[in-house]
């Protein structure tokens, strides 16, 4: 009877890990972790971008509203009041520029709230002045007093306060996202640890034998780490890819606020962070498997 031809050994699997280290469960769980991490990363990047946007655009700005007097006869004409306020603003310390919005600009600003009624000339609207401040901004309260004396009822609205509140909210969202990332990483470590322990238990006899034949801890740990790294990388890629359609959907929902979605508009930290996710998963797989195996091997003499 002819023997089957001799087949080249699969040298890399002398511990028989191919069947011992969950080749479905581990990638699946890591994929779920990577998916969550991708969403958290997107949340963090989105919040960061909004904070940046608000701060750049509005931190150094004021709006001044000059109301139309109820009884025009009792006061100087509206144009004069506006001119007086503008003049006062332009000579006030800390003001870089002050410009009255045209009625068209005003209507555009109000359209989201009032619709086309905003352009109805019969509607009494205050005149609005957009003010840009120099970086060392003066106290808006002092400005309010000064302008109120020139034209009673004038309102000075500092964007800075709102921006500070929104920025704080944005940073909190960002903090939560980082917290989620940390928790996800911790769960991934736990998952890889459990899978590695199960593999160690399943291959206990083989490991003890190979240890007895003179294998170093490093050799055995390397076998496990190589497999865990590969499986975690696989899971990371799957999870990240699975998150892309969801992120696309979120970007589409955000489009009315941010303009049409396109890749170049995605925050740069997200463009770096997403490809880094599978690599981070692989690194977690490697380090965790190494540490778990080496700790386990210490029970052997």
């Amino acid at each position: 009877m002819a023997e089957p031809p001799y087949r080249r050994p699969r040298r890399s699997d002398d511990l028989g890990l191919r069947h011992a280290l969950g080749d479905r469960m581990l990638p699946l769980l890591v994929a779920a972790m990577a998916f969550l991490a991708a969403l958290a990363l997107a949340g963090s990047a989105g919040a960061a971008a909004l904070v940046r946007h608000w701060q750049e655009g509005a931190a150094a700005a004021l709006t001044v509203q000059v109301p139309t007097p109820a009884a025009p006869a009792a006061a100087p004409a509206e144009g004069e009041r506006l001119a007086a306020v503008l003049a006062a603003l332009q000579s006030a310390p800390g003001v870089a520029a002050a410009r009255a919005l045209t009625p068209a600009e005003l209507a555009a600003l109000l359209r989201p709230w009032l619709g086309t009624a905003g352009s109805d000339p019969a509607l009494p609207l205050p005149a609005v002045i957009a003010v840009h401040l120099v970086p060392a901004a003066p106290d808006p309260d002092a400005l309010q007093d000064q302008l109120g004396r020139i034209a009673p009822g004038t309102l000075v609205e500092s964007h800075g306060v709102w921006v500070a509140r929104l920025a704080r909210l944005g940073r909190s969202v960002q903090g939560c996202a980082w917290l989620v990332l940390a928790v996800v990483a911790a769960v991934a470590v736990a998952v890889v640890t459990a899978a590695t322990r199960a593999g160690l238990a399943a291959r206990r006899e083989a490991i003890e034998l190979v240890h007895g034949l003179g294998a170093t801890d490093g050799y055995i740990a390397r076998r496990f780490a190589r497999r865990a790294t590969w499986l975690a990388l696989l899971g990371g890629v799957i999870g990240t890819l699975a998150a892309l359609p969801v992120l696309g959907l979120l970007a589409a929902l955000a489009a009315p606020f941010t303009g049409p979605p396109d890749l170049a508009m995605l925050p740069a930290d997200l463009l770096v962070g997403l490809p880094a996710l599978p690599l981070a998963a692989a690194a977690i797989g490697f380090v965790t498997a190494q540490a778990t195996v080496r700790r386990w091997l210490r029970r052997l003499p």
Binding site: Y6, D13, G16, H19, A206, G214, T216, P301
Partner: peptide, 27 residues
């Protein structure tokens, strides 16, 4: 402990219960 593997590699052992790895060929 780290010195022992090198010593073990200079020792050959025929186990009473063989201890062959079941997933590997004789070779």
């Amino acid at each position: 402990r780290a010195e022992l593997p090198a010593l073990r590699r200079r020792i050959g052992m025929v186990f009473q219960d063989f201890r062959l790895l079941t997933h590997l060929s004789a070779f």
